[in-house]
Measured scan of single mutants.
Amino acid sequence: KELVLALYDYQEKSPREVTMKKGDILTLLNSTNKDWWKVEVNGRQGAVPAAYVKKL
């Protein structure tokens, strides 16, 4: 499985998103959308802005 690093804090704004903190390591589930990537963090799945994460 592919991992990404959170470059910034992000507070979810809808139920389809997830909150992450700078430095979090997230499991990347889907990166086909260039703006929003689906990730899993702390057992929750949701979208985060692609510009806020970097593939490891």
Rank of each mutant, 00 (worst) to 15 (best):
residue 39 V to R: 00
residue 51 A to R: 14
residue 55 K to W: 09
residue 37 W to T: 03
residue 13 K to R: 14
residue 39 V to H: 00
residue 32 T to F: 10
residue 28 L to A: 02
residue 12 E to Y: 05
residue 7 L to R: 04
residue 23 G to K: 01
residue 48 V to E: 01
residue 55 K to G: 06
residue 22 K to E: 07
residue 13 K to L: 09
residue 44 R to Y: 06
residue 47 A to Q: 14
residue 43 G to F: 05
residue 47 A to W: 15
residue 46 G to Y: 09
residue 28 L to N: 00
residue 29 L to K: 05
residue 4 V to W: 08
residue 1 K to L: 13
residue 32 T to N: 13
residue 32 T to D: 15
residue 19 T to C: 05
residue 10 Y to D: 01
residue 42 N to D: 13
residue 5 L to G: 02
residue 25 I to D: 00
residue 8 Y to S: 08
residue 11 Q to E: 14
residue 11 Q to T: 14
residue 51 A to F: 09
residue 24 D to F: 04
residue 38 K to L: 15
residue 35 D to F: 15
residue 9 D to F: 04
residue 30 N to A: 11
residue 32 T to G: 11
residue 44 R to G: 04
residue 50 A to N: 03
residue 43 G to P: 01
residue 16 R to G: 15
residue 54 K to Y: 09
residue 6 A to D: 01
residue 36 W to M: 07
residue 44 R to M: 08
residue 32 T to K: 10
residue 52 Y to E: 05
residue 10 Y to S: 01
residue 12 E to K: 13
residue 40 E to W: 06
residue 36 W to K: 02
residue 39 V to F: 00
residue 40 E to D: 09
residue 51 A to L: 10
residue 12 E to R: 13
residue 50 A to I: 04
residue 44 R to S: 06
residue 25 I to F: 06
residue 38 K to V: 15
residue 21 K to A: 09
residue 5 L to Y: 11
residue 4 V to F: 06
residue 12 E to L: 08
residue 54 K to S: 11
residue 12 E to F: 08
residue 24 D to Q: 13
residue 31 S to L: 05
residue 13 K to G: 08
residue 4 V to Y: 09
residue 52 Y to P: 04
residue 21 K to S: 09
residue 21 K to C: 10
residue 38 K to E: 15
residue 3 L to C: 14
residue 53 V to A: 02
residue 39 V to C: 03
residue 21 K to D: 03
residue 40 E to R: 06
residue 40 E to S: 09
residue 43 G to W: 03
residue 41 V to A: 12
residue 36 W to I: 05
residue 44 R to T: 07
residue 11 Q to Y: 14
residue 23 G to V: 00
residue 29 L to G: 02
residue 42 N to G: 12
residue 54 K to I: 14
residue 33 N to H: 12
residue 49 P to H: 03
residue 9 D to C: 05
residue 12 E to T: 09
residue 29 L to H: 06
residue 39 V to N: 00
residue 46 G to F: 13
residue 55 K to Y: 11
residue 19 T to I: 04
residue 35 D to K: 12
residue 5 L to Q: 11
residue 23 G to S: 02
residue 20 M to A: 02
residue 27 T to Y: 12
